[in-house]
């Protein structure tokens, strides 16, 4: 298990748990479909202070502060 900020581009990840983030942000991510066991596909790595990934068919952009509090398991590395 590692934070989303450590994940590599084009990998399929499975969301595991939230770290230390504010309740309202957690609520918003949950509403967007980020629930334990949900797979997400990283589009852009955390090189620029931001991460973009696909969650339930939608492109989601996050800043790295919050992405660092999203704990994921890596399933497949397409590279």
């Amino acid at each position: 298990m590692s934070p989303l900020t450590k994940a590599k581009k084009d990998t399929i990840l499975v969301f595991s748990a939230f770290g230390n983030i504010v309740e309202s942000e957690k609520q918003k991510l949950t509403d967007l479909g980020l629930i334990p066991g949900e797979s997400i596909q990283l589009i852009n790595e955390a090189k620029n202070g931001y991460i973009t990934f696909i969650l339930k068919g939608s492109r989601i952009a996050l800043d790295c502060h919050i992405a660092g509090e999203i704990i994921v398991n890596e399933v497949i590395n397409e590279n």
């Binding site: 504010v22 918003k28 939608s58 989601i60 502060h65």
Partner: peptide, 9 residues
Amino acid sequence: AYFIMELPP
């Protein structure tokens, strides 16, 4: 505040 945003197609 944190940045969370959906990018529409």
